[in-house]
Amino acid sequence: MILRPPRPADAMQITAIHAEGLTTGHASFRAEPVDWDAFHDAYALALVAEEHGTILGWSAVAPTSTRDTYAGVGEVSTYVAAQAVGRGLGKALLSRLVADSEAAGWWTLVAQIFPENHASLALHRHVGFDVLGTRRGLGRMTHGPVAGQWRDVIFLERRSRVR
Results as ranks from 00 to 15, higher is better:
53 G>L: 01
140 R>S: 10
92 A>H: 00
143 H>V: 11
48 V>P: 00
91 K>H: 15
19 A>D: 09
117 N>Q: 03
156 L>E: 10
80 V>Y: 04
41 D>C: 12
53 G>D: 11
20 E>Q: 14
16 A>K: 05
79 Y>E: 04
141 M>W: 04
8 P>G: 08
17 I>H: 05
26 H>Y: 11
128 G>P: 04
82 A>T: 13
151 R>F: 12
67 R>G: 12
117 N>C: 03
151 R>V: 02
11 A>S: 09
105 G>L: 00
37 D>M: 04
130 D>S: 15
8 P>Y: 09
108 T>M: 14
150 W>R: 09
25 G>R: 01
125 R>C: 04
99 A>K: 07
49 A>C: 10
46 A>Y: 02
14 I>K: 06
115 P>F: 11
149 Q>V: 11
3 L>F: 08
159 R>P: 04
41 D>M: 10
159 R>M: 14
3 L>W: 08
97 L>E: 00
15 T>L: 15
51 E>Y: 11
32 E>K: 15
141 M>Q: 15
22 L>E: 01
30 R>A: 10
158 R>D: 00
55 I>W: 10
9 A>N: 11
12 M>Q: 15
163 R>Q: 14
17 I>G: 05
90 G>I: 01
35 D>M: 02
125 R>W: 05
42 A>P: 05
4 R>Y: 02
126 H>L: 08
157 E>T: 12
17 I>A: 11
1 M>H: 03
52 H>M: 14
24 T>C: 08
102 E>A: 01
56 L>T: 07
5 P>V: 07
115 P>Y: 06
86 G>R: 03
104 A>T: 04
80 V>I: 09
34 V>K: 07
140 R>I: 13
36 W>E: 02
83 Q>C: 09
150 W>I: 04
107 W>L: 04
54 T>G: 11
90 G>E: 06
67 R>H: 13
115 P>W: 08
61 V>D: 00
2 I>G: 11
147 A>H: 08
92 A>R: 05
74 G>E: 01
72 G>E: 05
20 E>I: 07
23 T>P: 08
34 V>T: 11
92 A>I: 03
115 P>Q: 13
153 V>L: 11
22 L>W: 00
142 T>K: 15
86 G>Y: 09
78 T>Y: 02
123 L>S: 02
88 G>Q: 08
55 I>K: 01
125 R>H: 08
94 L>F: 02
122 A>Y: 00
80 V>P: 04
142 T>C: 08
41 D>W: 06
48 V>R: 00
37 D>Y: 14
32 E>C: 07
118 H>V: 03
